[in-house]
């Protein structure tokens, strides 16, 4: 353990934010994730890539216990956030998810106004003492979500009325508003057109200055563009994990190479 830390320090890397050790996930009898161990760094964009059904999204959802909402799903192994086991019985998933926010594949704004969408998190977590503070948080979040200029004049209009790309950026702003430490993104651009995708990618790049961002993507180009670290999943196993540049140019595992060069997946 100590050696590892040392190694990473010497490489000039950030602190480890999330550490997973020997994680297995079962859906009823289906063994979806097989013995995955990974370390995710702070202030870094980490990409999970791999063919469809390889378990990358499932693993992502383990990181903020979203799988709890599925009855038949069972998770074993340790996942530590800042050294604390998030599957400890004493942990309230609600508190965990306030620290580890999530953005989903399809933009899912609530059927409320844009303002109320962003205010939702701060309100339930009691982050604002008064209206002025809440207004401030919302403006800040929308600015950081790179959508403030587009919506500042229509905050009272429903969030569902925005375009797909705007909706997704609204959802990101909504996730940021709760001031999470980690942001999980499950294929955030798969439902967007290229222009909207570019906007969101630019945003992700900005976000990494403050957050640890984990992004699942099926687009290798996207992973190469936005991430510093990349993990390649195949058939439920973590095949290779390392610097993005190294994975894409000089993979160690033959399966990674096959996937990168388009022979599998």
């Amino acid at each position: 353990m100590n050696d590892m830390r040392l190694l990473q320090r010497t490489q000039g890397m950030n602190d480890i934010k999330i550490q997973a050790n020997g994680v297995d996930v079962f859906y009823a009898d289906n063994h979806a994730i097989k013995d995955v161990s990974v370390e995710i760094e702070d202030k870094t964009v980490t990409a999970f890539i791999g063919p469809s059904g390889c378990g990358k999204s499932t693993f992502l959802r383990c990181l903020n216990r979203m799988n709890d909402t599925i009855d038949i799903c069972k998770v074993t192994g340790d996942i530590l956030l800042d050294g604390e086991d998030i599957y400890d019985p004493k942990v309230d998933p609600v508190q965990l998810r306030a620290k580890v926010g999530m953005v989903f594949q399809k933009p899912n704004p609530f059927p409320k106004s844009i303002y109320d969408n962003v205010a939702y998190g701060p309100r339930i977590h009691g982050l604002a003492k008064n209206k002025a503070e809440l207004d401030e948080i919302i403006e800040k979040s929308l600015r950081r979500g790179a959508i403030w200029d587009e919506v500042k004049d229509r905050l009272k209009q429903p969030g569902t009325g925005l375009s797909g790309g705007q909706q997704q950026r609204l959802c990101i702003a909504r996730a940021i508003a709760t001031e999470p430490e980690v942001l999980l993104m499950d294929e955030p651009c798969s439902a967007l057109d290229p222009i909207a995708t570019a906007q969101v990618e630019e945003l992700i790049d900005e976000l990494k200055q403050n957050y640890s961002v984990v992004i699942v993507t099926h687009s290798m180009q996207q992973a190469a563009r936005v991430s510093q670290k990349t993990a390649f999943f195949h058939l439920g196993s973590l095949v290779e994990y390392g610097e993005t540049g190294k994975i894409f140019t000089n993979p160690e595992d033959s399966r990674t190479e096959s996937y990168i060069t388009g022979r599998i997946g």
């Binding site: 956030l81 604390e84 998030i86 400890d88 004493k90 942990v91 940021i176 001031e179």
Partner: peptide, 15 residues
């Protein structure tokens, strides 16, 4: 946006 550092709440334990 980037200059505006997120005001992280004081570190709290999950436990």
């Amino acid at each position: 946006a980037s200059t505006n550092n997120p005001a992280h709440a004081p570190k709290t334990s999950l436990l």
